[in-house]
Write a protein that binds this DNA or RNA. Structure first.
Length: 236
DNA sequence: GCGACAG
DNA sequence: ATCTTGTCGC
């Protein structure tokens, strides 16, 4: 059965928040992803004034990080970007992309927060519950909480804190480059999540799954945009 | 009431 | 997220 039959996305912000408060109870911020041999990165891309969301999932073999599969899906959104409600904007496109994915990744990286979220349900946690898979949030900035600056060496970390609780880890994936903010999504613990992010980061700030997803999402968006324009606005 | 605020 | 060219530093 389709996830969207049991999970509404077309909600008003206040209703979306209530749904998050209900779903947060299903998040399991611990566990072992087991022996990881396949990882995936998911991301979305869109053109400024447009309401079309292009979502992609890229699967990579681990630990060699060779890309083995790429899928994409596009949806039309009415939900705006509201901090804390990102999944209601990108979720439907991501779900469709995952439906098209034939690989079965052991862990999935998302561009955004896991439990480091106002209601403990960032996009990585939310999607983790819907997909019932281990997920990790890899964000480029903080949504809630604070973190000290990790030392300049690659591999340095500093806890992300909120009310004295550790909700994630700032991780320096590249020497002297701004850290990424890792938080657990679902069915994995923070130690393994940080370990995977670090081992999947090869010479760039973003770990390969997320980086490849980002690149592919932009490619897909530009190609589709070009194709649609050609069929709807013939050249003279 | 005033800011902060993933992508 | 996206708009955008060159430019400074490792």
């Amino acid at each position: 059965m389709d996830i969207r039959e049991t999970h509404p996305f077309d909600l008003a912000p206040a209703e979306a928040i209530r749904l998050q408060e209900r779903l947060r109870k299903q998040v399991r911020p611990s566990g072992d992803a087991g022996k990881v041999s396949l990882v995936a990165g998911a991301d979305a891309s869109y053109t400024k004034g447009d309401d079309v969301i292009h979502a992609v999932v890229v699967a990579l073999r681990y630990p060699d990080l060779t890309v083995v599969e790429r899928v994409s899906a596009a949806t039309v959104t009415t939900f705006p970007y509201i901090p804390g409600l990102l999944t209601f904007r990108e979720g439907p496109a991501l779900i469709e992309a995952f439906r098209r994915l034939r690989s079965e990744p052991d862990v999935i990286f998302f561009d955004g927060q896991g439990i480091a979220h106002p209601r403990g349900l960032g996009i990585a946690s939310h999607m983790g519950v819907l997909l019932d898979r281990p997920t990790v949030g890899v964000a480029k900035s903080l949504l809630v909480g604070t973190a000290a600056e990790p030392a300049v060496e690659r591999g340095s970390t500093a806890p992300m804190l909120r009310d004295g609780e550790t909700i994630g880890m700032a991780v320096r994936t590249k020497e002297r480059v701004k850290p990424v903010y890792v938080s657990v999504g679902h069915r994995i613990d923070l130690v393994q999540a940080v370990d995977l992010v670090l081992s999947a980061a090869r010479g760039y700030r973003l770990p390969e799954p997320t980086r490849q997803a980002h690149l592919y999402a932009n490619t897909v968006r530009r190609e589709r945009g070009r194709g649609e324009r050609q069929t709807s606005l013939p050249t003279r």
